[in-house]
Computed example of a mutant assay.
Amino acid sequence: MGAADLVPGVSGGSIALITGIYEKLLDSIKSIDGKALSLLKNLEIKAFWKHINGRFLLTLLAGILTSIFTLSKIISYLMEEHPIPLWSFFSGLIVISALIILRDIKRWNWGVILAIILGTVSAYLITGLPPIGSPDALWFVFVAGAIAICAMILPGISGSFLLLILGQYERVLQAVNQKDLITLGLFALGCIIGLLSFSRLISWLLKNFHAVTIGLLSGFMLGSINKLWPWKQVISYRLNSKGLQQPFITENVLPHHYLEVTGQESLILYAALAFSFGVFLVLGIERTAYYINRK
């Protein structure tokens, strides 16, 4: 999940779904409620830890942080120097993941099919949105935090990408660099409230409308391929927090037009190999998770 969240356009929620821990993650987050706060207030630490499934959350958080600190430089290098194989790898990962998740649907009906179509179209349109002008008021930082954190646990949609669309990506990065505690505090508060609220909604939907919700989540993943498409033409650039120029608005092109449009090789063979590696990696993870969960 940490490795996925490092890449704009890829969601850690997708990895949680692949490995079969998604519903457990939602239930654990949802358990941070009034009872948990009461236990913590009364210093019943052991009961509090058990109530929120602390061992699971701590292990997951440790894995995410370990991945972020160990893989951030590698992924940044690959995004800069080998973008086509990298995006192809993630495309393969997402496509096979969506298909695997659809196997959980036992009863197919028109509602499930419509949910898949709705999820696919929604994610496709969201990932194609241009950045918008946003209010400078501090309250919007809170709103952006709530929206972005929801996307981080929603398969197929990246929280960092939504921050970019909302026009708050650079503002949050600047707040981190300048140690602007007010802005960071409001952003963190928005993240906490958004996470606790949205996890309850998704958990309720999974328990009451499992097949339709799985179809919708799978659709989100399939529609996100619009953002992950390896062959892109850069329309405009932006300056990052270090003052370096980075692609800002891009447009997807077909592989056989890529050389003509950009002057660079399309690397179709490398893309196919990276896509296949993503597919086989997910199949391996899925098999491993299956045997672990059986034990």
Rank of each mutant, 00 (worst) to 15 (best):
Q178L: 12
T213Q: 07
G194W: 04
I182E: 13
G190D: 04
L184K: 13
S160K: 01
A146N: 06
A148R: 02
Q168E: 14
N208C: 07
I202N: 04
G159A: 07
M152W: 12
N208P: 02
S199G: 12
E170M: 14
C191M: 15
T183V: 04
V212Q: 11
R171M: 04
G156N: 10
F161S: 08
L184G: 11
R200G: 00
A146G: 10
L186G: 02
L184Y: 14
S199Y: 03
A148T: 11
A151K: 01
F198Q: 00
C150N: 12
I165M: 13
Y169P: 09
F161K: 06
V176C: 08
Y169D: 13
L163W: 12
A151F: 03
K207T: 09
H210C: 01
I193D: 01
F140R: 01
L184D: 11
V176F: 13
G190Y: 14
V141T: 14
I192V: 14
I214P: 04
S160I: 04
K179V: 14
L196C: 02
A211E: 14
F142G: 07
V212A: 05
L206S: 02
S160R: 00
I157E: 05
I192F: 15
A146C: 10
S158H: 01
L189D: 11
F140I: 00
I214E: 02
L205K: 03
S158I: 06
E170R: 15
A188Y: 12
